[in-house]
Design a binder for these strands. Sequence first.
RNA 1: GCGGAAGUAGCUCAGUAGGUAGAGCGACAGCCUUCCAAGCUGUAGGUCGCGGGUUCGAGCCUCGUCUUCCGCUCCA
Length: 502
Amino acid sequence: MAKKIELTPEQKRFEDIISHAKAYGFVFQSSELYDGLQAVYDYGQNGAQLKNNLKQVWWRAMTQMNEDIVGIDSAIFMHPEIWKASGHVDNFNDPMIDNKDSKKRYRVDHLIEKKIDALKTENKLEEAEKLNATMDAFLAKEDFEGLYNLIVTEKIACEVSNTCNWTEVRQFNLMFSTEMGAVAGEDNKIYLRPETAQGIFVNFLNVQKTSGRKIPFGIAQIGKAFRNEIVARQFIFRMREFEQMEMQYFVRPSTEMDAYNSWKTKRMNFLKALGINPDKLRFHDHTKLAHYANAAVDIEYEFPFGFKELEGIHSRTDFDLSQHQKHSRNKIQYFDEQVEDKDKQRYIPYVVETSIGADRLFLAILCESYTEAKGIDAKGEEKTRIFLKLHPAIAPIKVAVFPLLNKDGLPEKAREVFEMLRYDYETLYENRGAIGKNYTRMDMIGTPYCVTIDHQTLEDNTVTLRERDTTDQIRVLISDLPKIVEERVSLKNILLMVNGKW
RNA sequence: GCGGAAGUAGCUCAGUAGGUAGAGCGACAGCCUUCCAAGCUGUAGGUCGCGGGUUCGAGCCUCGUCUUCCGCUCCA
């Protein structure tokens, strides 16, 4: 552990959350037994459950709650040409160079482009043109030595150190690659997808034809994606292997802004329905748009380390489908009978994308639910009580059942209650330790309900039902338990809220 | 990749002048307990990140290495 110096309250809170995530089986460092693997994490027994619940609610909110959206599950491996069409091969393979004096790293093209701009402002247009052309040629050939020599002969200096003391030009591959087939070699090189969206685009025709959907309609997908991030920090916020939940909504050209605005609202509602404090959510418009987009906004969540992107909503125009049409030499068009103008009936659909990281949502939910409150300990003294204030529907364990004492037939009775509940809810039975310890353990993983069986239970079939957030206990009939639990634990609560019917 | 810091029990840490490791909490078992990590008794758990070097002797000194953390570089 590094020496803790002057942590801000937010940093301290974030460290506490990370420790909590490990101590209670939510998130472990990958390969920890072997000293760890940077920027890769595993989900433990409670984390996997929570993450699955989040994926489940997203999936249902998309596919079950929208009649015009279907879900698919495309492969991680895809034809290598797809990544050329999408622009990832070019954009994810940037040559870089470091200045040895300032230790600053630059993208080679950015560095040279700055010089080109400088030449332009000096009105040396011809020189600028020439330099641009030379650079493009070297970039196209991936001639790193040529690029290096170009930087040196053009006397391009580091802004910080003002020197031309450069390292050699190196390639940073932001996409992971591997070999397909038993024999290794360049020809067999394929990539692990850096985003799931392309799996949707290349299946657009398949799904549209077999589902009989008419535009507008959407395709949703949850899946792993991989990026060789140079810097990957802040716990599971930025990982090399991560999981995306994306939905591509296909619309008629010129109607994309309506869909864009409507999805902005819907997605914000979804996050609020999960119990995230609206004050910690905000829209952040992109001022610099990516080459494929004509509008883009992030929904940001205020993590302990600041407002950061949680979900992106992009209007991607017809860029992707057009690219695939071009590269695959297959027509990707939709025939729209609703359009009156015969010349405009056949078109490449426009796309509005919603894209959220399952891991980021997980982290946001964890940060949001981690609660420190005042409580009373067994001696009646005030203590700090920590619990996860998760929406009951996404909690890893929904209800825990304990015998108050581990004798007098109480365990047997408790097992009966457990058996009654376990078919409908993630239920936990525990007969070890003191009751207070068991309650605390359940608080730590966000279990909304604890049921305790005592001697009175044997007489009148009532139990104490203890509620997580308030620690209040009420006495209820065993036969009423399913109804009471169901009322709060059902995913339906979230889905109704997403649809604005709460 | 560069710079800085750190690696001792599951966790938080101690380890004094180099003399082959301790505490608290947790875990586990038993007892006791009618409701919020209670109490009593007991038990387990560490080749001090790894590898060389110095030394009669290294958790401590030295060199290397790995990993993690913080800052920088990148993020369609």
